[in-house]
Amino acid sequence: MKRIGLFVCWCGSNIGGVIDVPKVVQEAGNFPGVVYATDYKYMCSEPGQDTIIKAIKEHNLDRVVVASCTPRLHEPTFRKTIAKAGLNPYMFEMANIREQCTWVHSDDKEGATKKAVALIKRALAKVSKVEPLFESYIPITKKALVIGGGIAGMQVAIDIADAGHQVILVEREPTIGGKMAMLDKTFPTLDCSA
């Protein structure tokens, strides 16, 4: 039997100010397989992450759903969190109830609450089907290509080269320097630009 943990974030008032979080926890918590459901002011904070770790251990959870912001922001954060608690980091799914719910439906609190429940149930359905995944490792060629030899390109090249790595600096013009080499003294110190 799957043992899902559901953690709904308030994100201060970003989420909690629009939807009825306790109601959402209660409704989505009825989903088959959910053995623990709770909410917290800021899930991504250290106490928030500790809540998840503690719950995984206490309730013997084998997979987790966090309902908060977009996975494009904090998916890596929470994967690390559950890995700390000994779970495979891919036994995880996020429900995006901030960017794609409360922020766009702040004028329709009831609709937003309903949608949040639907989005969380989607994540719960997905997490019920996930399996552990394992990263593979690929080698790195420790050499950098910098395209453009103006002040930005030169600075990048020098900094990487100073760290001991090979750099190829490509410039389409006959000389490096870019626009900067055309300039006279530069503000605010009026020193030479070359």
């Binding site: 790195i140 030899g149 750099v167 600096l169 410039e171 000389t175």
Partner: peptide
């Protein structure tokens, strides 16, 4: 500019253009 040109770890390729890139992170 001279610092970039004289650095032993920098291969300066002026009057050059990148014409093709393939591969992926770590292995372009």
């Amino acid at each position: 500019m001279v610092a970039a040109a004289q650095h032993p770890n920098i291969k300066l390729m002026t009057y050059c253009e990148v014409t093709d890139v393939s591969g992926y992170i770590g292995n372009f």
